[in-house]
Amino acid sequence: MNRKMPVIIWGATGFTGGELLRIIARHPYMEVAGAVSRSKAGTPIGAIHPHLRFAYQDVNFISPEEGGKIDAGLVFLALPHKAAAETAKKRLSTGQKVVDLSADFRLRDHEQYKRWYETEHPCPELLEGAVYGLPELHRQEMASAKLISGVGCNATSAIFALLPLAKAGIIENARIECRVGSSEGGAEAKEGSSHSLRSRSLRVVSPFLHRHMAEVIQELALPEENISMTVTAVELVRGIQCIAHVTLNRTLREADIWKLFRAQWSNEPFVSVSPAKPAHFRIPDPRFVLGSNRVLTGFALAEDGRRVIAASAIDNLLKGAAGSAVQSANIMCGAEETAGLEMMPLYPA
C-alpha cells in the first residue's frame, strides 16, 4: 500500500464524522477523498470542525451527488438511522465497501430493529451479509466483508465488561450501569444538552432499558430478562464507564476470574486489564483512555464469591464509534488492525 487509499465520509459534520476526519488525517494508508454533507456542502471543513482547519486547509464539504461520483473503494457512513441504510444500499451496489456507524446493520433480526428503533428496516435483505463492527468479536468475518456495522458506544462498553463472564456461561444476571459523557448525544443542539442544563448533572436517562441492550443480548447471547441497562449522564464530554453488577450462577475464587479475563484479553492490541492494586485504579476510569482507541477492563469479586463488579472504560467517540470503525476498515482492507489508531491516552486532561 504505497499510495494512500481514498475514502469518503458521509455525514462528516457530526462528532463521529469529525472524529473520522481527525483519525484519517494521520492514517498511514487512508486519505479523505470527500467529506459529504447535504446541509453544509460548499462550507469549509474548518468552519464546522475548528480543530481540523489546519489539516483540511481549503477543503470544503461536498454534496451527496458529488460524493457519489468520486472513485473510492471504501465509504464510512456517519448518517442518522434509516438514511444510513438507504445510502449503504446504493454504495454497495456500486461495488464500494461500507463501514456504517449507524445502528441500521447492528441487529441481525429486523424485528428487533423495529422494536428498539421504532421503524421498519429499509433493506432487511442486507442484514444477512453485515458483520457487527467490533473487531475483538468478529475480525475473521471482517476480512472478507463488504458491509460492516457500527457499534453502540454503551453496548461496546458493556460487551467489554461482560464478555469473559458471558463466554464462560457463569452470569446469572447483570444490572449494567453506563456513566456517559455529553458527546454521546451528538452535535445537534437539543433541549437538555445546553451547558447550563447539562453541566454537573447526574441525569439517569434510562432506568432499565436502552436500545444498545439489543446488541449486548445479541453479541453475548444473554437472555434479555437477565439484564438491564441504566444510563446516567455525568460530568464528562467524552468517556463511558460501564459498571455491571453481576451475580454469578456459582461461587468462584478471584484467581478463577483473573484467568478468564487474561485468556480473553491478553492478546488484544487495544485492551488492558486494570491491575488489582493500587485499589483506586482497579475499576477502570475513562480518564486513562481519553483520546485513544484503548479499552480498560477489570473486576472486583465480593467475599461471597458470587457478586462481581465487572467494568470497562472507553472513549465513546473512538473505541465506541469512529475508532472501531477505522479498526474494522483496516481489517476489511487488509491493513494491520492498529494502523492509524495508536494515539496515546491524554492524561491529565
Binding site: 483473573w258 487474561r262 486489564v273 491491575p275 488489582a276 492494586k277 493500587p278 485504579f281
Partner: peptide, 14 residues
C-alpha cells in the same frame, strides 16, 4: 532473597 518484594505483572499486586 527472603523478604524481597516482587510486583505481579498481571494484576499489579505486590
Amino acid at each position: 532473597c527472603e523478604g524481597e518484594l516482587l510486583i505481579c505483572g498481571d494484576c499489579g499486586t505486590e
